[in-house]
Design a protein around this nucleic acid. Sequence first.
DNA 1: TTGTAAGCGTTATCAC
DNA 2: GTGATAACGCTTACAA
Lengths: 360, 360
Amino acid sequence: MTRQPSSGDRPTVKDVAASSGVSATTVSRVLAGNYPVSTATRARVMKAVRELDYVINAQARALGGGGTKTVAFIVHDLVGPAFAYVGQGVEQQATAEGRLCLVCTTHGDPERELELIELMREQQAEAVVLVGGGSNSRSYVERITQIARALDKSGSRLVLCGRPPLSPEVPATVVEYDNEGGAYAITSYLISLGHRDIAFLGAGEPGHTTVDGRLRGFERAHEAHHLPMTPQRTRAITFDRESGYQATRDLLARGEKFTAIFAATDVVASGVLVALREAGLRVPDDVSVVGYDDIPLARDLTPELTTVHVDHEELGRTAVRYALNRDRHAMSQHTVIGTHVVIRNSTGPAPKPARTRPGK
Amino acid sequence: MTRQPSSGDRPTVKDVAASSGVSATTVSRVLAGNYPVSTATRARVMKAVRELDYVINAQARALGGGGTKTVAFIVHDLVGPAFAYVGQGVEQQATAEGRLCLVCTTHGDPERELELIELMREQQAEAVVLVGGGSNSRSYVERITQIARALDKSGSRLVLCGRPPLSPEVPATVVEYDNEGGAYAITSYLISLGHRDIAFLGAGEPGHTTVDGRLRGFERAHEAHHLPMTPQRTRAITFDRESGYQATRDLLARGEKFTAIFAATDVVASGVLVALREAGLRVPDDVSVVGYDDIPLARDLTPELTTVHVDHEELGRTAVRYALNRDRHAMSQHTVIGTHVVIRNSTGPAPKPARTRPGK
DNA sequence: TTGTAAGCGTTATCAC
DNA sequence: GTGATAACGCTTACAA
C-alpha cells in the first residue's frame, strides 16, 4: 500500500522504495548513480520519484554519507561594494565546485564574529571565509590562530581574504591582494605628476591591516623619492563618504598645504570630491584626488576617479578555490593577487605654486 | 577511558557523556537547556564540553530534533546595489529570528533558478526568497505556481520579493513595493515642473514585472494630466549604465524632442548623465533626469539624482519576517511597501522652448 | 543486480 | 534527575 504524502511531511526513500517495489538501498543507488542498477529498476524508481515528487533530505544525507558541501562566507556587511564583489566571487566558485554558500554578517562586532565561527563549526562548513582587513593586535592574532585550529580540528578550513598571513604553523588559507604595492604605485604616480604635498585620508585604527598597508605604501613612495611627509596631512577617518567629506573640510579649514589627496577608499574619495567642489576647488586643476578599490562608483564620480584596481571577485574565487583544493598535508597557504593603477580624470599635473586654503 | 579526538574527527555527545560520566541524553539536555538538570551534573558536562572542544553537529540535530532553521536567498547577482540591500535585509531578519542564511545566484538563468529551488527543497529551507522582478508570461506564472506548491509540500515557504502577487490559491508570501505608484509620483513631479516631453528609458522585455510597473506609472501620470505619449521616446534597454548611455545618444542622434528623461533605474541614469554631458547639455538646465531605486550612487552622481526611494533592506526584512511568522492556515500573503520621491539636483523647470538635438 | 543490517549524531519517549 | 532505547532518513558494508 502506497503512503499518501500530505503537506509538510515529505516522502522518504522508504516511500519511494515501497512505491516502486524495491529496497531503500536500491533507491539510494539509483539516486546517487554511482552503482550499477538495471535499467528497468532505475526506470521504475525514477517514476516513483516523480510521482511522489520526492527530494532527498540533505541533512540525512550529510549524516549518513559524506560531508555537507558547504562554504561559509562571513563578512562585515553585504552592501559595501568591495564586500559584495568578494561575496560574488565566493558564491561563484563555491557553486562551481558544487558547494552551497552560507552567508553571515558581523557588522564589525568581534563577538558576533566568534559566535558565527562556532555556528559554522556546527554546520560543518568545509571552508569558512573571513573577509576584510582585521586588526594586527597581538590578542586578535591569537584569537584568529585559535579559531583556525578549532576549525581545523572540526575538519573545516579557515580562509582569510584580504588580510596578511599568519604564522606558517597556523592551519589557514590566506588570499590577499598587493595592498601596499598598489598604494606605493599610485602615490608614485602622483609624485611623477609633480605633487609634493599629498594628504592621506585613512589613517586611524592603527593596527588595522588594510589601512596600515595603504599608509605604508604611501610612506614608502615618499621615501623612495626622498620626499618628506608631514603628519598634519594624514587624517584618521571612518571610511565612509561622510568622513572623507569632513576630513577634507578640516584640511581646508586648517589651511594645510596640499596639491593632491590620497583617499583610502573610493567611497572616501566621493566625499572628498564633494568637499572640494563646495570649496570652489577644481579637480584635477587645483587638486588631484585618488582613491583605492576601483569599485564601479569610481567611474560614476565627476571627474572619474584615478584609483587602484583590486579584483575583489577574483579574490573571493581564489579564496574558495584554494581552500577546497588544497594539499591536505600543507598547513598554511598564502597567495597574493596583483593590483594596478587605473588612471582616469581626477589626477593631473601639480599646480604651481601649491594651493593652500582659498582666500588665505 | 576517554576517547582522544584527532584532527577532522569531531567529538560527539557520546564522547562528552563518557568523559563526564553521564548518559548522552543528559548531555543533550544540558546543551539544549530546556530540561531540569542538577547543577553539579551540568557543571561536569560543560567542563567536558570545553575540554573536548565539543560542538554539536547541526545536521544530526536537524535530523533528530526539529527542523533546520535556514532561510534561502536566491537572487540574480550579489553586486547589483538593489539586490545587495535586499540581501542585507534578508540576512539581518533571518539572523534576528535565529536562522542561517543560504545564498545562491542565478545570473538570470531560469534553469539555474529551478535547480536552486530543488536544492533548497533538499536543504529543507524554511523559506525560499526569490528576489527581483520576474516575467508576467503565462508559462512563467505557471512555473512559479508549481514551485510554490512543491515547496509548500516540502514544508517550506516561497517568498516573492519585489514582484506582484500570484493567485490567492497559491501558497506564497509576496512582498512588493509600490513600484507603479513611485513611477506615477515622479512623473507627476516632472510634469508639475512644466515638462511635457519626457523620454522613458526602460521599456523592453514586455512582461517583465518591474519594468512594466514603472512604465505603467509613467503612462498613468500622462493620462491623469491629459498629456499625450509618443512611443518614439520610450526605449528598450538592458538596465545597465552602458545601455542608458547608448539609449540617450540614440535619442539625441535621432533628434527626438524631450526636456526630461525618466531612467528606469539609477544605474541607467548614470549612463544618461554621461551621454548628456558629452553632448554638451546641462542637467537640469537643458534636460531634467530622474532615476529609480535611490541607491547610494544617486547621491554621488553630478548632479545628485532626483529619484524614487525604495527601502530595499526593509523589503528583505519584511519578506523574511512574514514568511517565518505567518498564519499557518493562510494560503497567500501580500504586502506592499511604500515608495516616495526624493528630490535632488537633477531636475528643474522645463526650459522653453523645449530642447531638441543641439545644432539641429 | 539486489537486499539486509548496521551505523551516522542527535533528540524524544518512556521508564526508573 | 537521569538513563535506556527508539526514531530521524540516508549511505555503505556485507551477503545473496
